[in-house]
Design a protein around this nucleic acid. Structure first.
Lengths: 223, 223
DNA sequence: ATCGTCAATAATGTCGACAATCCGATCGGT
DNA sequence: ACCGATCGGATTGTCGACATTATTGACGAT
């Protein structure tokens, strides 16, 4: 029965396409073409767009259609700030809840991170970074916050690798992660939260630097 | 020339109706009847429901329709935790950004709060409470966080007045607000954040108490 | 050449109809 | 009386058609 998996995942497909960069910021999202491209009806696509709009990934202007929402520099910084506040809280919670498996998984991630740093592989490092943080989310066992963080993350995706460009950042970042790990291992709530906050404060600074240096570059090569 | 203001505000209307308690948790939301009741087409109502689902106010089960989402006790506590983390950050930001008008507005609110406490008017106090916090949001000038807080608040609406039931709570709450105000007035970031965090930690405790005492009551009067 | 007007086109917004699905009730067998 | 199958009403899901609205480009007046 029904070989084709035509479900209501127009939403998931479209979301994935946007997050993975197949559609660029400000690019128009025409219902008909999307519908055709992913073999769904216009109705389903419309519903997906409404959801994505509510989620902040897409912007719908009445009678003018939908486009991929462009996250401004300022907004990216705000997102990072929110992330810091939320993850600080999660780190605190995680400190009293991490299981042995969590800790061993985290330790493994850190080991791989160290490899990546020594290999000078920034993007590999960034990905491990993401899994490290997400493991803490699950350890914290806090669906509400995790959900929000996931949503914010996909909005900030455009800035994901920007922070890795700063020279020497990876080494420092690695040390910060080790500090977080240590606090979690010791089940020390306060240290865990502060370590996480300090880490994300650094990230925030680095992001500010990246954005600033981007502006500087744009001024040299106008157009 | 359309005298009737039939716009796409099916969403706003429905949202307001849910938040204001016209529809109870778990109540079914039948597209046809809602459409009729608010003079919109089924299409618009459908779109509104999708948005509300994404927003967390409504739950759509495929082929089974939409109902007002019931926020569990656990979730209410999680929401309050997130709120604490976010508002702590906002208080810190506000400390360096409050204007003279902000401060005078806050002072006024506190004055009215004191009146309400002395009059024993818990619900009047709760409303002032909301305006106090929201004024801080605007002072913090942080759209991303404010937006999230607004959304969370409407989800937790069911528990809004629960915390006011605890004896003596209002007096303590008032003192906490005064502390926050003092820190903001002094433009002291650290104090502002800690004051806000301590305040919301108290609120969280009170909420735990309220939920617990509710359970206790339910055990005595089964059914 | 510049500006405004207007038509042609493309895309969105909305409606009605119908198919698919679910829920409850009725009915028959044991 | 109990249980499972079956039918009917109610509701959701989807499609196609059409009206509405923006956008583009051509045209003509100044």
């Amino acid at each position: 029965m029904e070989t084709r998996g035509q479900r209501s995942d127009a939403y998931h497909k479209l979301r994935e396409a946007i997050v993975s960069g197949q559609y660029h910021p400000n690019e128009r999202l025409v219902e008909a073409s999307i519908a055709q491209r992913m073999g769904a009806g216009r109705t389903a696509v419309r519903a997906a767009l409404v959801r994505l709009d509510q989620e902040g990934l897409v912007e719908i202007e009445p009678n003018r259609g939908a486009r991929v929402r462009l996250i401004s520099d300022r907004e990216a910084l705000e997102i990072e700030e929110v992330r810091a506040a939320l993850e600080g809280m999660l780190a605190r919670r995680a400190a009293t809840r991490v299981t042995a498996e969590d800790l061993s998984a985290l330790r493994q991630v850190i080991t791989k991170m160290r490899e990546r740093v020594e290999a000078g592989d920034s993007i590999g490092y960034s990905e491990l970074n993401a899994t490290f943080h997400q493991r803490i989310w699950t350890a914290a066992d806090h669906p509400t916050a995790s959900h929000l963080l996931g949503s914010l993350k996909s909005q900030g995706i455009r800035f994901q690798y920007q922070t890795a460009l700063r020279p020497g950042r990876a080494q420092r970042s690695l040390r910060e992660h080790e500090a977080i790990f240590g606090a979690l291992k010791a089940h020390d709530e306060d240290s865990a939260e502060t370590a996480m906050r300090e880490h994300l404060a650094e990230v925030l600074d680095t992001l500010r630097w990246a954005i600033e240096s981007q502006h500087r570059a744009a001024r040299w090569l106008p157009g």
